[in-house]
């Protein structure tokens, strides 16, 4: 089931959560979290992702690995809105004693499938899960969200060689391609393009999509699911900081919290119908 208007509204709610919790925490990573909001809204709030909030460790659930762990706010919001824990808890982000650690901690937060924070590792983990699921004949799928800057890590490409080698078609990698990393533009620091050619050379089925068009994203998930015998990567063209005008395409907002004034402006922008 896919209802475009509903997903857009959820994505906007997720963006409001992201800005609100980072503002409350006084630190965090809004840029990459906002960038991925549409990808995750379309995954978790349609028929594309199988999970049960009342049974977070259900063996036959689909898995989601947030390889770019610094964007924890986006998955926290998704899990809260999906019913894994109360949304009020989002305001405890990064606080002492909170279940919402600065970077994802599996055992702390219901619905998280793995801890993360050290970049470049997620796809290896996703591969291992996918391999184990395939080995026992489960039809569960594994999704792994990576940043584009993260592809500068060598391990990402070690992992990219693994999945096709073992014919894993139950894995779907997502690349949030927004061309901005902490220190600046990806293409000025260490260019990761051409991404389609790279992933194709690594024997992946490559799907390119607009990372903010929820309808296109939904189609990409469907196409990934339909691809058999090899893994799929969805290259999502995204805008870092998407939805908050002054954050868009800005490295400054990779890891900065908005002040009260900036927060008010962001929330005003996110109230407007998309």
């Amino acid at each position: 089931m896919f209802q475009e208007q509903k997903i857009k509204e959820i994505a906007r709610q997720i963006r409001r959560d992201i800005v609100t919790m980072i503002h409350a925490a006084g630190s965090g990573h809004p840029g990459g979290s906002l960038s991925a909001a549409d990808l995750l809204a379309t995954l978790y709030f349609t028929d594309q992702f199988r999970c049960d909030p009342s049974s977070p460790n259900w063996a036959e659930r689909d898995r989601f690995i947030l390889s770019k762990g610094h964007t924890a706010p986006v998955i926290y919001s998704v899990l809260a809105r999906r019913g894994f824990f109360p949304p009020e808890e989002l305001l405890t982000l990064r606080r002492f004693g909170s279940r919402l650690q600065g970077h994802p901690k599996k055992d702390a937060t219901p619905g998280l499938d793995c801890s993360s924070g050290s970049l470049g590792q997620g796809l290896s983990i996703a591969n291992g899960i996918a391999f184990a699921l395939q080995r026992r004949g489960s039809d569960a799928r594994v999704y792994c969200l990576m940043g584009d800057g993260e592809l500068q890590e060598g391990q990402a490409w070690e992992a990219a060689m693994f999945a096709p080698q073992h014919g894993l078609d139950n894995i779907c990698a997502l690349v949030d391609y927004n061309n901005v990393q902490l220190d600046g533009r990806v293409d000025e620091i260490k260019e990761v393009q051409p991404l389609r050619e790279k992933w194709e050379a690594f024997r992946w089925n490559v799907i390119e999509t607009d990372g903010h068009d929820v309808s296109a994203i939904y189609s990409a998930y469907q196409a990934a699911r339909a691809c058999k015998g090899r893994p799929t990567v969805i290259l999502a063209q995204c805008v870092k900081g998407k939805g908050v005008s002054y954050m868009e395409n800005s490295a400054k907002w990779h890891g900065t919290a908005p002040n009260d004034e900036e927060y008010a402006q962001a929330m005003a922008e996110l109230e407007v119908e998309a």
Binding site: Q121, N127, A132, Q155, F162
Partner: peptide, 25 residues
């Protein structure tokens, strides 16, 4: 048995994923 090739970091990550899904690597 699974040969991961000359990729120690990836091998450990893959093993971690296997453990998350119930195997004992």
């Amino acid at each position: 048995f699974l040969d991961c090739g000359i990729s120690e970091q990836d091998m450990v990550g893959t093993a971690a994923g296997m453990a998350l899904a119930g195997l004992t690597p």
